[in-house]
Design a protein around this nucleic acid. Structure first.
Lengths: 107, 107
DNA sequence: AAACAATATAAGAATATGCTTATATATCGG
DNA sequence: CCGATATATAAGCATATTCTTATATTGTTT
């Protein structure tokens, strides 16, 4: 793999918020609104982060009605699975979202 | 591993020059002057890059006389070996250095 | 000790990044 | 088609990054 693509990939990974997003997507696919809810950030900020992840081919997007769901991709990167294992568990965050009745609203 | 340390690690990896340095160190330990020679960059620029790698605990330094040799570390990161495998081979660069008689000067 | 060699650090300038607010686009339901 | 909802993009500002040049530090050699 060439240095430019690899550097872009790691630039995308070099941000705490984007790492949290990946850790969340490891649990399950989420739409932007759900990420906004969990991360407590503005919607544009979240959109800009997922865009970077998509440009680095670390996530894929899938439109479903008026929502856009993001899911892990990373198939370009042989180290991706190994990397994912180092991410802290975010099950709690997902649980909290569900407890507050804000998961499953998107469909 | 916590998000802050992981983000710092990937920030350090998110630069083409630093990736090249790691790819070179994968071949063998090198001192700053050798890196300067191969990378065709100024000495302070190279020093600043290796410092970032060291702060992220991706390389270790070892003083040997008036030279400082750098070598791969990364033992904090379970994905490190897997990551290293994605780096382009730099054997040619090392060969070129030796061919020009600029390797082995440091000792 | 003085001169030299290798490396590190500091300060400043140019560019990149990440946020905010405002606005545009896309889809759904009536 | 229209209003509402979800998401994306744009512009501007604050901070971070990376280079350059100048200088400091560390170790060697005479």
């Amino acid at each position: 793999m060439d240095f430019d693509q690899l550097a872009d990939c790691h630039k995308a990974l070099g941000d705490k918020t984007r790492l949290r997003i990946l850790a969340l997507l490891k649990e399950e696919d989420l739409c932007v609104g759900e990420l906004v809810e969990i991360l407590k950030m503005t919607q544009p900020a979240v959109s800009q982060h997922v865009r970077k992840l998509r440009q680095a081919r670390l996530v894929r997007e899938r439109r479903q009605g008026q929502w856009v769901f993001y899911s892990l991709d990373g198939r370009d990167y042989p180290f991706f699975l190994s990397f994912l294992r180092t991410l802290p568990d975010q099950q709690d965050e997902i649980q909290r979202l569900k407890a507050e009745g804000k998961k499953g609203v998107c469909d």
